[in-house]
Nucleic acid binder design. Structure first.
Lengths: 227, 227
DNA sequence: GAAATATTTTAGGTTTGTCTAAAAATAAAT
DNA sequence: ATTTATTTTTAGACAAACCTAAAATATTTC
């Protein structure tokens, strides 16, 4: 079970990413995969036979629930490798994607689950995209940079990109950590600093006075909506 | 450059391993790769055109120096991944090979060199086989278990397979470490324990009194001939 | 050294995934 | 509602890597 060719996997993954906006068309997919529409039709028939996509000639296609499950496995592999490359091998942000494109097709489930464990079950890849867990569960809300959080919105810190001693010292002083709830109260256009209210996760319901965050700090803090 | 298909890579690697005993024959290679002689002939023509093998119809083949270079790159990848799987992901000894068979075909040189660095430039994989360095240099003498070292032979400790606290404590007490020179003076058939003389690497020229090593300990110490 | 046996190569076919060019279906425009 | 344009599918080919069966070459044996 769950043994597909590199090519099939790439199609499934691409459909998953494109289908956010409704059904996917042949041309869209051909453009995404840098191939020809005729090739897409060929492959789609195959994936349709394998019950991975709903396909009606001339009317686009979407993944079946089985197809979605496969897609999530591939995305899990991809993002875990990206995390590994950035975190352990010190690849830069922009370099990880290309190498992960190859690594993601190595299909040993045990390899991926052990890699996940080795990495400490990370929940976001270096681009801030969520990593599906071993059961295919994935965070719905995408991670965004604190600088992009709109005024008066509340979100939770989930990742800090710069992990230097100095950075962690500053965060400690401001009592900001993974899980801290943040609400943006003001943004100053002069230096792009912001004023925020924070609440420690769970056990600290008391309202804190607003504190100030420099642009440089905000740039390295990532948050997501929700709990 | 250096971009070959998975199939080509498997052929090159297999020829490298088989050619230790002279030229390789079509049947040998077919058996090794679980394929048919006719398929081997097809591929061999292709590799011959690419100047990776010397090939004369009906008379076997060997790698060219270019082919050997390619083989060493593939073996380097394979053994580094094996080391990674065993050391970092806690795969058992016997499981690493199969997964590494897939990982070895991911061809990014940067990936492999960074992996090498991350792992601390290991010189032997979990089976005791030497890992070629980034320039394709490889230890000539294979690592063997101390139990296999013949009487009155001298060799150098290069690897310890059991790295439990207890084991390291015992090794520390006996002053045995990586680089220690060992000469086997006696082997007792009764309990398969052995008496050895040791000399610390370089700076300790003085002859030590022989010490005794249990079979259990010897089984976990690996040595190689040479410096 | 000719016959028997084993090995290797050729010839022709299959599958996977791609392509081009032409035909069919859908969507847009007048 | 036709015509025009776009999109999608079919038809037929091709390369890679494999296969079977038959022919060619080596090797053994007598």
């Amino acid at each position: 079970m769950l043994n597909y060719s590199t090519s099939e996997e790439n199609y499934i993954k691409a459909i998953f990413h494109l289908q956010k906006d409704g059904t996917v068309t042949t041309n869209e997919l051909a453009a995404e995969l840098q191939t020809r529409p005729a090739s897409v039709t060929d492959m789609l028939k195959k994936l349709s036979n394998k019950k991975l996509v709903h396909y009606q000639a001339y009317h686009g296609f979407t993944l079946t629930s089985e197809g979605r499950k496969v897609a999530l496995v591939i995305i899990r592999r991809h993002r875990l490798w990206e995390f590994f490359l950035a975190e352990k091998l010190k690849f830069s942000w922009e370099e990880v994607h290309e190498v992960a494109e190859d690594l993601e097709h190595v299909s040993s489930k045990k390899l991926i689950d052990k890699l996940d464990e080795f990495l400490g079950f990370p929940r976001f890849d270096p681009h801030g995209d969520p990593i599906p867990d071993a059961n295919g569960k994935i965070e719905t809300s995408k991670q965004i940079c604190l600088t992009e959080l709109p005024l008066n919105s509340t979100a939770v810190v989930c990742y800090v990109s710069d992990q230097s001693i100095e950075m962690l010292d500053l965060l400690g002083h401001k009592k900001i950590a993974i899980g801290t709830k943040i609400e943006v109260k003001r943004k100053f256009s002069y230096d792009r600093s912001m004023e925020i209210k924070i609440r420690q996760s769970r056990r600290t319901p008391l309202e804190q006075a607003p504190i100030n965050i420099s642009e440089q700090l905000a740039k390295n803090i990532f948050v997501k909506y929700g709990t």
